[in-house]
C-alpha cells in the first residue's frame, strides 16, 4: 500500500506551524482515519474534534488542502496524493489547539433566535401539515451544524460584522419563518438585528455544505424577498398606507 504525507497544523492559541506525518493508505480511507492513525501511533496529543465519523454530527470540520470539509467524509481517493495533504483548522474561528477551534460564537448566536411558537392544535389534538409544505423546511433541518458555512462566509471571515448571524442561522430562521405552525413574525430582526442585508449571495456557503442544502437559493434569497416585500415594496407600502396599516414591525426579544 502507498504511503501518503500529511502536513498537519500543530499549535495552540496564536502559535503554531505545520508538521509532517506519513501514513499508510488503506482501502476506503478518509482524511479523519489518517488523523486518528497519526494520533494513535505518532502524536498521542494531536487535538481533533470528532464524533460520529459518518457525516452526521458535523464535528470534524477542518480545511483540507485549503477547502472547508468534513474530514470523515473526505475520501483519500478524491485528493491528489503525489503531493502532501494539508490539514488545517477552520480559519474563521479562534484556534484552541491543533485542529480544534473555538466555535462557541455560534452557540451564542443561536440563543438570539426566538423560540418556535406554534399555533394551537386542532380539535382532534393533532397538528395537520402537508408533506409538500414541509419538504423545504426538512431540507433546512438536515443541517448538522458543522459550521463550515460560517467558516467560508466572507462576511464572517473578512468583514467584522458582529450583527450578521451567518448562513447557518439564516437557514434556521428560514426553517422557522416557513414553518406552517410558527406564529412569530421574524422579519424585523432579520433585517435589523441579524443583518441579512450583508449577504450578497456569492453562494460560497452552499458550495461547502456537506448536507447539500441549497442555503442561498432555498433559504437566504426567499428570506431576502420576504424582508424586501415587507419593508421596501412601494406597492405594499401604498396599500398599507391606504388601509392605515404599518409595516409589520412587531419587536422580537432583541
Amino acid at each position: 500500500m502507498t504511503d501518503v504525507t500529511f502536513r498537519v497544523f500543530r499549535g495552540a492559541g496564536t502559535q503554531g506551524g505545520f508538521e509532517e506525518y506519513t501514513v499508510q493508505l488503506s482501502e476506503g480511507m478518509v482524511v479523519l482515519d489518517a488523523v486518528l492513525d497519526i494520533q494513535a501511533s505518532q502524536a498521542g496529543d494531536l487535538a481533533v474534534r470528532w464524533n460520529c465519523k459518518a457525516g452526521k454530527c458535523g464535528s470534524c470540520s477542518a480545511e483540507v488542502n485549503g477547502k472547508p470539509r468534513l474530514m470523515c467524509m473526505t475520501r483519500m481517493n478524491t485528493l491528489p496524493l503525489d503531493q502532501p495533504v494539508t490539514i488545517e483548522p477552520m480559519r474563521s474561528f479562534p484556534l484552541i489547539k491543533d485542529l480544534v477551534t473555538d466555535v462557541k460564537r455560534n452557540f451564542e448566536i443561536n440563543k438570539r433566535v426566538r423560540p418556535f411558537k406554534p399555533k394551537p392544535r386542532q380539535a382532534d389534538g393533532t397538528h395537520r401539515m402537508m408533506q409538500y409544505d414541509i419538504d423545504r423546511i426538512q431540507e433546512f433541518h438536515k443541517c448538522i451544524e458543522c459550521f463550515l458555512c460560517q467558516d467560508v462566509c466572507h462576511v464572517m471571515r473578512d468583514h467584522q460584522k458582529p450583527d450578521f448571524i451567518g448562513p447557518r442561522f439564516l437557514i434556521r430562521l428560514a426553517a422557522l419563518v416557513m414553518h406552517p405552525l410558527d406564529t412569530e413574525n421574524r422579519l424585523t430582526e432579520l433585517k435589523d438585528a441579524f443583518g441579512i442585508g450583508y449577504c450578497n449571495i456569492t453562494k460560497c456557503c452552499t458550495e461547502v455544505c456537506p448536507e447539500n442544502i441549497k442555503i442561498t437559493d432555498n433559504a437566504i434569497i426567499p428570506l431576502k424577498e420576504r424582508v424586501a416585500g415587507n419593508f421596501y415594496d412601494p406597492l405594499a407600502w401604498l396599500w398599507r398606507k391606504a388601509r392605515g396599516k404599518r409595516p409589520d414591525t412587531r419587536p422580537g426579544t432583541e
Binding site: F116, P118, R128, M129, M130, Q131, I134, H141, D182
Partner: peptide
C-alpha cells in the same frame, strides 16, 4: 412524540397531514 412536534420537530406526514 406530540411534545416534540409542539417544540418544532417536523416528522414525515401521512396523506391527511398527520404524523
Amino acid at each position: 412524540v406530540n411534545e416534540l412536534e409542539e417544540w418544532g420537530a417536523l416528522f414525515d406526514r401521512t396523506d391527511d397531514g398527520r404524523i
